[in-house]
């Protein structure tokens, strides 16, 4: 875990209480360990809402592992990605924030994809998710497109994204998702 806190400064300061924060190499072993810690921390407190927080956490940290431009072995796409992830507990919601560097040539594509998903009405998210799941069955896909939709679904559309130029021609990509602590009465 070679990273010091390089990226924390790009995240919005926590409003409530930080439940989990990790910055560094996101290996599979690390993901499993953090997920287990999260299960122990949140399972009893958040009830079924915990599953949404947990699901968003896993999608985001696996995205860092798979897609971050910064690798544990530089320029080796098979090595583990590096980034930051944080979960905080606020009065009305849990907030999950993740950030990682992305390649310069990926910025427009990711921005378009996020913009497209943000523009989907909430009631259409499920059908779009199912359609994309059917169309992305190839073994090589790690599922980032479906992953963004999954995050949109689990956060009930309460998610956002931002890009920061951080020098050296690098762009830092941040996703933030909120999960309400109590389900809305109109939820299905």
């Amino acid at each position: 875990m070679p990273q010091s806190r390089i990226y924390a400064k790009f995240l919005t300061p926590v409003v409530g209480k930080t439940i989990l924060e990790y910055e560094g190499v996101c290996s599979h072993e690390c993901i499993v360990q953090l997920a287990q810690e999260l299960e122990h921390t949140l399972a009893e407190r958040a009830g079924v809402r915990f599953k949404k927080v947990f699901g968003i956490f896993v999608e985001l940290i696996q995205n860092i592992r798979n897609y971050s431009a910064e690798r544990s072995i530089p320029h080796d796409p098979e090595s583990d990605g590096i980034g930051i992830i944080r979960i905080s507990e606020e009065t009305l919601c849990y907030t999950i924030t993740a950030g990682n560097c992305i390649p310069k040539d990926a910025v427009a594509r990711i921005r378009d994809r996020c913009h497209t998903i943000k523009s989907i009405p909430k009631h259409e998210l499920r059908s779009r998710y199912n359609a994309l799941l059917h169309s992305e069955q190839e073994r090589t896909s790690k599922g980032a497109g479906v992953g963004f939709l999954d995050i949109a679904l689990k956060s009930d559309g309460n998610w956002d994204y931002e890009f920061h130029l951080i020098g050296g021609g690098r762009t830092f990509f941040i996703i933030t998702a909120h999960v309400a602590r109590a389900s809305h009465p109109n939820d299905t």
Binding site: F54, V58, E59, Q62, L133, Q137, S141, K142
Partner: peptide
């Protein structure tokens, strides 16, 4: 199943 990530959801479809 308690939780499926998206890769697993694709595998479920398969």
């Amino acid at each position: 199943l308690n939780y499926l990530n998206t890769s697993s959801a694709k595998c479920m479809l398969n």
